[in-house]
């Protein structure tokens, strides 16, 4: 199963990658390749050229400054999932990365590639939304930072655009009073999220003072769930409040836009969304010692 022919460029710098992408509108950027290569092998994509950034220094690795954990775009899922400090500092991100694909896929697939690809059923988008991440993008007009709430724009579409290169992701560290979780119902064959819910709650005592809850697999891109957030804010994470927030999870979504395929109807997805929102909140509650 060979892909169509293409030219192969190995970029020596991010700027060169950006130039190559700008010069050739039919070129694609390749990071870990674990979304792009399967698409090319199955004939769904036939780019004229690939621009490889896997050899660039400085695009890979995890750095901390006490407030923010910086994940280089080429950092693999395995590195993130095996990072004990990240399980403390941004549990939801480490937990989502640990649920992507399988061991071999996690050894190659990258966090930057994941969010740049913006597969609606992948695991990282909701986790990054819940974690309130910031995405660093290098485009033809230079470098810029994009708030994660503005990043995902549609199915396989992001604020990085066609010519932008995601260079890294900043994940704020959870303070002592914050806890988070990612739970998902995987599609039986592919392991992608039929529904995945990420939640990060900040507490003052028992009371939730800030909630960020987001879902994968439900809409055409990773999406915040403001109705569930509103329902849990100001409450303590007990069975009643969790049930109310679960019921509310789908309220802020355009129901006709909810994904539907042979694996799950819209109705079933919304049911899963409620159930998994509840599970995510319960897990966060347990981790914070409130349930």
């Amino acid at each position: 199963m060979y892909p169509d022919q293409f030219e192969f460029h190995r970029a020596d710098s991010v700027s060169e990658a950006v130039e190559l992408l700008a010069d050739n509108p039919d070129a694609e950027l390749i990071a870990g390749g674990h979304s792009l290569l399967p698409t090319m092998k199955s004939g769904l994509a036939s780019p004229d050229a690939l621009v490889d950034i896997s050899d660039l220094d400085g695009l890979s690795g995890v750095e901390r400054n006490g407030e923010v954990t910086h994940l280089g775009a080429m950092t693999t899922y395995a590195t993130v999932a095996d990072d004990d400090d990240l399980w403390e500092d941004a549990t939801v991100v480490a937990e989502a990365a640990s649920q992507v694909g399988d061991r071999q896929v996690r050894n190659r697939g990258t966090v930057g590639g994941n969010i740049a690809h913006a597969d609606p059923a992948s695991d990282l988008p909701a986790a990054m939304l819940a974690a309130n991440a910031t995405v660093h993008v290098h485009g033809p007009d230079g470098e810029r930072s994009v708030e994660i709430d503005d990043f995902f724009q549609g199915m396989y579409a992001t604020a990085a655009g066609e010519e932008g290169v995601v260079t890294g992701i900043d994940v704020p560290e959870e303070g002592e009073n914050t806890a988070s979780a990612y739970v998902k119902k995987p599609a039986p064959a592919s392991g992608y999220a039929l529904v995945g819910v990420a939640a990060r709650l900040t507490f003052d005592g028992d009371e939730v003072t800030d909630a960020r809850i987001a879902a994968n697999g439900v809409m055409d891109h990773g999406t915040r769930l403001p109705a569930a957030e509103d329902a849990i804010e100001g409450e303590s994470v007990d069975a009643d409040a969790v049930a109310v927030a679960g019921d509310a999870a789908g309220d802020s979504l355009d129901e006709y836009m909810v994904m539907e395929d042979q694996q799950a109807s819209q109705e079933f997805r919304l049911q899963l969304l409620s159930a998994y929102t509840e599970r995510a909140l319960e897990t966060v509650g347990e981790r914070a010692g409130h349930m």
């Binding site: 199963m1 192969f8 390749g33 290569l37 061991r103 071999q104 896929v105 050894n107 190659r108």
Partner: peptide, 8 residues
């Protein structure tokens, strides 16, 4: 460990 069918 890497799946050699998914690497160039």
């Amino acid at each position: 460990a890497v799946k050699a069918c998914t690497e160039l």
